[in-house]
Amino acid sequence: MAGQSDPHISLFSAEEVEFMAEDELIEIVPNMRMDPLNFICGDFGPFLPQIASQVPLWLAVALKKRGKCAIRPPQWMSVENLTRVLEGERESQGAFQVLPFHYVEISRLLFDHAREDIPDMYMVRSLIEDIRDVRIHKVETSLEKFSGTSAVKIPNLSAMEVNIIRPFVGRALQAFYKHDNPEKIPDVDRASSAQTRAANNEPRRQLRR
């Protein structure tokens, strides 16, 4: 993003965000029989042909790659729901529509590996891309409204979006905090810091948009 002084990459790499998303449960329909799997991360199965079962996303993708199952796209990934979400995003200026925390990663993995299991795949993909664009744009415009706070609620943001804005927003808020509270910076001269503390209590001029 523009405005970063050093090419500081985000805290988590995109792969790590995807790694966290891969533990989300998703429904598969196996086409073979398999005994229960007793993993460190949990127990899954037994798997019977044509009987739906809930497994973590990484397992679903692995089975799908080996041709052992079909993946059922989650409820929220229907054209109907996504169209509604997109309208909602476009209408409301400040609020974000409710989407699964890992919707970006989940949809990407399904597009890459389970294309044929998604009805109207091209429509779904273009809807999700539009939704992402609107949301990121909304985040960027709402950044102008932050002015020297210690905490901001960001309901319904998703994991990937959080990871993208984190470096910039983190440093911006930190700069605001530092400038609002110069007495927090270790100061040898006590007198001058007492004066700045008094000056802080005046109402602040609203930042120009």
């Binding site: 409204k145 932050f146 002015s147 020297g148 706070t149 210690s150 905490a151 901001v152 609620k153 960001i154 309901p155 319904n156 943001l157 959080v162 927003v169 983190g170 808020l173 905090y177 609002d180 509270n181 602040r204």
Partner: peptide, 23 residues
């Protein structure tokens, strides 16, 4: 420190409920 309009500015409290996401 200054607080944004997103939460109650009558008192200086800030509180989160399960499910909240915040910076």
């Amino acid at each position: 420190s200054r607080q944004s309009a997103s939460f109650d500015s009558r008192n200086d409290h800030f509180q989160m409920v399960p499910g909240d996401l915040c910076i």
